[in-house]
Design a protein around this nucleic acid. Structure first.
Lengths: 355, 355
DNA sequence: CTGAAAGCGCTTACAG
DNA sequence: CTGAAAGCGCTTACAG
């Protein structure tokens, strides 16, 4: 029986020799029997921990076979109740199946992360992870450095912050996507275009926002600061921010939302105000998750190749696990506008419901 | 090692005596060695399944040992690009985190399933799975018996077919859900209520359909066979079937769709025909996935406790992994109607767009 | 408390 | 193909 790194795991009797006691005594300690002296118990426990002992019954079955180097990687999300996460899971697990790597799904909030990066990485290592993929998470430098201290390969997908140079990452051309979404709306004749952004400190929010700004400036259109708001990536943020925008004096005729799910919130806000999409308000999302064509009206959005990003990130991670150097360290895959039914020309005049 | 009821699990040599072969031969069968005669192998496999054999190494390990590599369970979907799957993943991984079990996500189509159930189970066992959770999949009896033959615990979530008595399963009260969805529409005044069902052979489709029929009959309403159609659980099925229904001479004023995603297709079909939801057509879904409140109009649907089902299924599976017997073997969690914006009174007369 | 010894459940190299 | 026999990792009843 060998561990993930191919080392032989110590047996109970090996621990016994190391501790200078009999195998029976070690067994008793392991099973919490009370007929063991306190000192002996403490001593044995220390050696068990030191040697990273694992009962044979808890190790993987010895089923042989030249099955190649089997690897287990962790895939960690802030939240996976979103179509965005679903697309990534699909890409990562597909690539995992192809490369004979197991993908263990988990969440940041599972309590395992904590502030001590090295301890967290150590736990993941002990749990058998050969590498870890973290998605859109608020990784601190302290946390990422924990991974390198422990020697656990790490790849970040869509890093919320601009990633440290040392951490491998996979993202998308968010700036270009924001540009083309906004250009699409300008091309339809819109002048008052709002941008409903994600958290201001997040790198992908900033890139999408600056794409919007660039398109407005290129077209010689002023950016009304009241039409540029930020909040979050989710439905609630979209609903609340759009409700505010639409209630204002001079409301926008189009909204570019930072994600598809955020755009759903905008559509809901429009509906509550009696506005039709796209007749009274055009809405453009971002990501083109599998849901975009399933809502009514089908959502115009910027396609982000999330499945490809997941696949790419997994392959990158496996190369790191295999001890290869990965160049380039940061990759951005191309985005592309997909026009559906939620965007159209602006209404001839200000919608009746406004004011 | 005894199970929860205090019964002893059969040992390998007990199986050997029962089969009239040596322990060595049984061991070879369990490990998929090829130096066993085909007849002998088949005979031994039958007895392993009959006696519900579980290798000692998979039974409950020493409690006080160091935290080892958590148990690893496989979570297998037909397709996880749906909010339904996302809810289940959330429940299963949450319970996994709490119970110190790793959840490895995979798909049926990963090529690993095949027709030889024992070989498939064997591969999963070799890949380190301590148990497997299969969701809504077309598991044949041949496949499920493969799991018991190799001693790999199996739990099925929302079994597409009525499960074999021997296979543990977790589902929901689909009949009751179909009943309350339909009663809701009847209570609003609808008389021509369509049911857009899932695949006819699927157990959950049938239960939801019969709930619909029961409600109609209880209310003394005739079931127009032209309004009861079946197809699939997805968006495309909803779109196509509803398009046909709405184009007919005497279209329904309400549709009860077999899933939320199918209901999205119905809403899209209504929109394309110029019908408003709920003014011209009421739509009720099933599952109450996280998306139901995010679409416009927010979807009236039957809440299915998918996260709870996932948690329950995982806990059930871990008990089987620990060598306990699980009673009851089949569990159905309660469903509950959630009324939102997609259902309302029927229009005063046939919508103008019809005919 | 401690450990020698017996034993359990399982696996495997090898003889037939 | 098959199984007797040796052996592995672990546990436990019991003697000291």
């Amino acid at each position: 029986m060998t561990d993930a790194a191919g080392r032989r795991r110590p047996t109970l009797s090996a621990i016994a020799s190391a501790a200078g006691v009999s195998a029976a005594t070690v067994s008793k300690v392991l099973n919490g029997r009370d007929d063991v002296g306190a000192q002996t118990r403490a001593h044995v426990q220390r050696l068990l921990a030191e040697h990273d002992y694992l009962p044979a019954t808890r190790q993987r079955p010895a089923r042989n076979g030249p099955a190649g180097p089997h690897r287990t990687i962790g895939l960690i999300f802030d939240d996976f109740m979103s179509p965005y996460a679903t697309e990534l899971i699909r890409g990562v697990t597909d690539a995992g199946a192809a490369a004979d790597a197991d993908v263990v799904v988990g969440r940041f909030s599972d309590g395992s992360s904590g502030t001590d990066g090295a301890a967290w990485a150590q736990r993941l290592l002990r749990a058998g992870r050969d590498g870890v993929l973290v998605v859109t998470s608020d990784l601190t430098a302290q946390q990422t450095s924990g991974f390198s201290e422990v020697g656990l390969p790490l790849v970040v997908v869509d890093p919320v912050h601009t990633p440290q140079a040392s951490v491998a990452s996979v993202g998308a051309t968010n700036w270009t996507g924001g540009l083309s979404a906004t250009e699409h709306l300008i091309g339809l004749g819109h002048r008052r275009i709002a941008h409903l952004g994600g958290p201001a400190r997040a790198a992908i929010s900033q890139a999408r926002l600056h794409g919007y700004r660039a398109a407005m400036e290129n077209a010689g259109l002023p950016v009304d600061p009241r039409l540029v708001v930020d909040g979050g990536f989710g439905f609630e943020a979209g609903l609340e921010l759009a409700t505010g925008l639409l209630a204002a004096d001079d409301p926008p005729t189009a909204v570019f939302a930072v994600t598809d799910v955020c755009a759903f919130g905008v559509v809901q806000a429009a509906h509550r105000r009696g506005l039709r999409v796209p007749e009274d308000l055009s809405v453009v999302g971002f990501d083109n998750t599998y849901l975009a064509p399933w809502v009514t009206p089908a959502l115009t959005t910027v396609h982000t190749p999330l499945q490809d990003m997941g696949r790419y990130a997994l392959q990158m991670l496996l190369r790191l696990v295999d001890g290869e150097t990965v160049e380039p360290h940061h990759v951005e895959l191309a985005t592309e506008l997909v026009v559906r039914d939620s965007s159209g020309p602006p209404p001839a005049r200000v919608p009746a419901a406004a004011g």
